[in-house]
Design a protein around this nucleic acid. Structure first.
Lengths: 106, 106
DNA sequence: GGTTACATGTAGCTCGTCTACATATCAAGA
DNA sequence: TCTTGATATGTAGACGAGCTACATGTAACC
């Protein structure tokens, strides 16, 4: 699965990833690829702007670090981010119920 | 649930509704509200443009009818629409797998 | 006569996501 | 040594879905 089709769930996916510990953008992409069983491979042009959006919104905080000459921006989820994730999870469950009800013949 | 949160699934929801028989826009809104257990209440400004998009794309065909002085545009799913629905269903299942894998701790 | 349900639609906007590009470091292999 | 690929971050420009608010008109009901 490429990046289309995750409409509206990107923030939730990123926040859920950060719940396991801080990470930089490239690592997040890799973590999502791995956890999804190689199904999800997000382009950088999708993830990095999303991280900046999340930072602007106060859902994550970012700080620059250095790892062997490579600069990394490591992000950490905030309390607001946890709340947003919880809301995102609820929205997801609601969507899931609706989709199941409509798609599955009863 | 209001209309946000159905991101990218609107076409699939509409096509799935039309699979049970032709319907006009207002009836589709009602059918989705009913089948979702009152959870989903889509505004007309979302559904009608979507139906026109689907018609332009060849996924549905529309024809004007008259019902007691009220004009209705009744839509029917096409073969292309059935294929699109099948694809939409597959995309949904893929998204569902990814979301489950990421959200649920294993 | 007024309100609610039925019924369709447009205008203008926001924002998420895409594609394509730009940049730089480091490790491995030819 | 040179080149390629993985690591790492980001911008520019564009598209399109869905939103809100508005506009219009008929039918049924009290």
């Amino acid at each position: 699965m490429d990046a289309d089709g995750i409409h509206g769930q990107l923030d939730t996916l990123i926040l859920a990833t950060l719940l396991r510990g801080e990470a930089h953008g490239y690592a997040i992409i890799g973590a999502l690829r791995e956890r999804s069983g190689e199904r999800l491979d997000l382009p950088s042009g999708t993830v990095y702007p999303a991280l900046r959006r999340l930072e602007r919104a106060g859902h994550v905080t970012g700080k620059w670090t250095q790892a062997g000459g490579r600069r990394r921006r490591v992000y950490e989820i905030t309390d607001d981010g946890r709340k947003a994730l919880e809301k995102g999870r609820e929205n997801w469950l609601a969507l899931r119920q609706v989709m199941t009800a409509v798609l599955d013949p009863s």
